[in-house]
């Protein structure tokens, strides 16, 4: 059982990492979610074997029969935090969509200016995006900002 959980955690980590390296925020959000699931699964697995629920009903049995409650509590806390931040990331993605009609994570403008400096000494023209994959969605009439 533990081996299965470990394999699942590994797959989640791998898929999450791959999605994290994508350019679009929606994919990154899913990647973060998968990574978080992987980490939480690892946390639960770290508590050792599954056992009886650690709720005492008046009779105290052998401690070895109960599962460890602490990692479960830790995982719950981590899940709540990941949930909140994921919601925030989605809101950020929506805001980016409102502004650019796109949720691509963009390059830093100052970095571009610095890297362009040795090529151009003249006044700085419009910054070339340098990436043909700007948006899946054409900016329609009436939407142009």
């Amino acid at each position: 059982m533990s081996l299965l959980l470990a394999v699942v955690a590994a797959v989640l980590f791998a898929a999450g990492t791959w999605l994290l390296l994508q350019r679009r925020l929606t994919r990154i959000v899913i990647g973060i979610g998968l990574l978080g699931h992987g980490a939480n699964l690892l946390l639960v697995t770290s508590g050792g074997r599954a056992g009886r629920s650690p709720v005492l009903d008046g009779t105290v049995g052998d401690p070895a029969q109960y599962s460890d409650p602490l990692p479960q509590a830790l995982a719950l806390t981590a899940i709540v935090i990941t949930f909140g931040v994921t919601a925030f990331l989605l809101a950020l993605g929506y805001r980016s969509w409102q502004i650019n009609r796109d949720d691509k994570v963009e390059d830093d403008i100052e970095d571009r200016l610095v890297s362009r400096r040795h090529r151009t000494d003249g006044p700085e023209g419009p910054i070339d995006d340098g990436d043909p994959d700007t948006s899946e969605f054409e900016v329609g009439e009436g939407q142009a900002s």
Binding site: I32, G38, V85, L92, R95, V105, D108
Partner: peptide
């Protein structure tokens, strides 16, 4: 928004590593 995306994602990766 642009800077926030990088910042939030990087911090989240660090947090996930922390949980791990």
């Amino acid at each position: 928004v642009r800077a926030g995306m990088t910042y939030v994602v990087i911090s989240l990766v660090a947090s996930t590593l922390f949980i791990t």
